[in-house]
Design a protein around this nucleic acid. Structure first.
Length: 327
DNA sequence: AACGCATACAACCGCGGGGGG
DNA sequence: ACCCCCCGCGGTTGTATGCGT
């Protein structure tokens, strides 16, 4: 619906105004111009992440560090997935929200490529209203979002049944739901980043190693042994129990029952499943990276690049249903 | 065409936590 | 113990765009 902010004349005039005020060193506010984006992007490419105040200063931006951080995390970061939320993501958000409440950052860690801000906005603008509408239509007085109840599924009205995980995953990867906002900048970033990525490791032939995570931001100072594939697995909400050093998966923090949380993965995923999930997700990482090298746009457009099994949402939802609820 | 409303999303603000001096 | 700085989070506001009248 809404077009991405880009080369609006207004922004250029804002930049001009900003330049006028440079002498006063007054921090700029408001929308970011393409020039500012480029400055920040270039700086991040060259120097990587650091103290945001320094970044703002050294990149030649009249922005506070906070603003730079926000812009990077929510918009410029190459792993940010843009575009509409799929029904599956929506269901996952609703489900996770029923478990975690307004802990957007924690929800976001389980939706690779989505930012807490994006999820929060999506929730406030769309899901909340839909749930309200659904609950008002419901004859039952119980409007809580207990994920285990049939009510929960009713509230999901209009959403696809989770029984069909194939459709689920296919729709999740629907390229039509992705925009190419900022893709040129991302392409620049990723192409430059890829050139610096080591393409070695014990993860299969030609399996690239990504710093920090496949969906994360390359970080200066990490060696190969510190690299994790966190982003690929984080939505599983626990420790897979395999190669702990490599597969660093954050648990659902602050759960009221940590014992059950910790035990879920090992109890419910046998080694075969573990291997399959890891392999599939690593393949996804590899495919994604490969796509990136061929041009960022293609990353989301290739129909066959991201396979259905790679995101076993049925499994995910089943597992997250087993987590204890919050009060 | 003009206006107003709804929507989506970017960005800001305030607060709290953590670390260092 | 205190202060300062930085970071991250959640709530909120601002604004561009779409759409109906």
């Amino acid at each position: 619906m809404r077009k991405p902010i880009g080369g609006a004349n207004e922004l250029n005039s804002m930049m001009s105004n900003a330049n006028v005020t440079t002498t006063t060193m007054k921090m700029r506010k408001g929308l970011w111009s393409p020039e500012e984006d480029e400055k920040l992007m270039n700086y991040m490419i060259t120097n990587g992440q650091g103290c945001w105040s320094d970044i703002a200063r050294n990149a030649g931006l009249q922005r506070c560090g906070k603003s730079c951080r926000l812009r990077w995390i929510n918009y410029l970061r190459p792993d940010v997935k843009r575009g509409a939320f799929s029904p599956q993501e929506e269901e996952l958000i609703v489900h996770l929200h029923s478990l975690l409440g307004n802990r957007w950052s924690q929800i976001a860690t389980r939706l690779p490529g989505r930012t807490d801000n994006e999820i929060k906005n999506f929730w406030n603008s769309t899901v909340k209203k839909r749930l309200k509408k659904s609950s008002s239509n419901s004859s039952s007085p119980n409007t809580s979002l207990d994920s285990s109840s049939s009510e929960h599924r009713d509230i999901m009205g209009g959403l696809m049944s989770m029984q069909d995980s194939s459709t689920f995953a296919a729709m999740y990867m629907d390229s039509s739901q992705r925009s190419s906002t900022s893709s040129s900048l991302q392409a620049i970033y990723m192409n430059q980043t890829m050139e610096r990525l080591p393409l070695t490791g014990d993860h299969g032939p030609n399996m690239p190693i990504l710093n920090a995570s496949c969906y994360g931001t390359p970080q200066v100072g990490m060696d190969d042994n510190e690299i994790s594939y966190q982003g690929c697995y984080q939505i599983f909400g626990g420790d897979l129990g395999l190669e702990d050093e490599m597969f660093n998966i954050p648990p659902l923090e602050n759960m009221t029952n940590n014992n059950s949380t910790q035990g879920i993965k090992r109890e419910n995923l046998d080694d075969t499943n573990n291997s399959m999930i890891i392999t599939n997700n690593m393949n996804q990482c590899y495919n994604k990276v490969q796509a990136i090298t061929e041009g960022f746009e293609n990353c989301w457009e290739g129909e066959d690049e991201l396979k259905v099994e790679e995101w076993d949402f049925e499994e995910l939802m089943r597992e997250s249903s087993m987590f204890p609820s919050f009060d």
